[in-house]
Design a protein around this nucleic acid. Structure first.
Lengths: 117, 117
DNA sequence: CTGCATCCTGGATGATACTG
DNA sequence: CAGTATCATCCAGGATGCAG
């Protein structure tokens, strides 16, 4: 991998955002979700942030947004065909993240053991 | 992957930082680099930021920091044994990032084509 | 050479109220 | 229901100067 061509940042820029990974996870799990359903699945997110993060993911072609012309409105979100290419990336990161949590827990335990001696 | 156990954020938290991916890339390429060498490889980073990002990576056990008790000081950084487990993660992200750049470029070209008709 | 302390700014996130 | 608008907050990152 050439230094000048490092594209890790490109992938990061898509995934970074306090709620993007969890939004993607829900959409991968459920295929299709309405705005209000996503909101319910993430009680702590504000409407503003949910809207914003969804817009950004849509902008990058990761998710699809379908508006049904109704009253009251109905909007459905789903992973785009292209967006599915992110699945393996998320999987690798998830697995490494899990391992890392355990690794660091091990480190902490070592420290406690040292101190108790 | 269970929603409650999503560890993508864990991986992200390690990699996020304006200079971390590029720092890691250099260290993977060169095995060992002094502080000043890293600085030279990244002309735009400030000393403060380089120090900070290195400290954070060290904190997470990704890199190793060796201080030689000399005057003037000499400090060498390298990827830790454990840190090498990040390589495949970075590779996957780099590859997806490259593909994404092309994908979005394709999208932009489509648009230009539409407009010229 | 390596690194810390201080001050500063923009952008990401949040709280809240309002709307078609 | 699915947003938008406004204001407030916080922190990563940058500029600069000092130090062992």
């Amino acid at each position: 991998m050439k230094t000048e061509l490092c594209k890790v940042d490109e992938a990061l820029s898509i995934l970074v955002g306090k709620w993007k990974p969890i939004i993607l996870l829900h959409l991968f799990n459920e295929n299709t979700l309405r705005f209000s359903e996503l909101k319910r699945l993430m009680p702590n997110i504000t409407q503003k942030m949910l809207t914003k993060q969804l817009r950004e993911l849509e902008e990058e072609d990761i998710i699809e947004r379908v508006v049904y012309p109704q009253v009251p409105p109905k909007v459905e979100y789903s992973i785009s065909e292209y967006g599915k290419s992110l699945q393996p990336v998320l999987n690798v990161m998830h697995e490494w993240g899990s391992a890392h949590t355990q690794h660091m827990q091990g480190k902490r335990n070592e420290k406690i053991l040292e101190q108790s001696q």
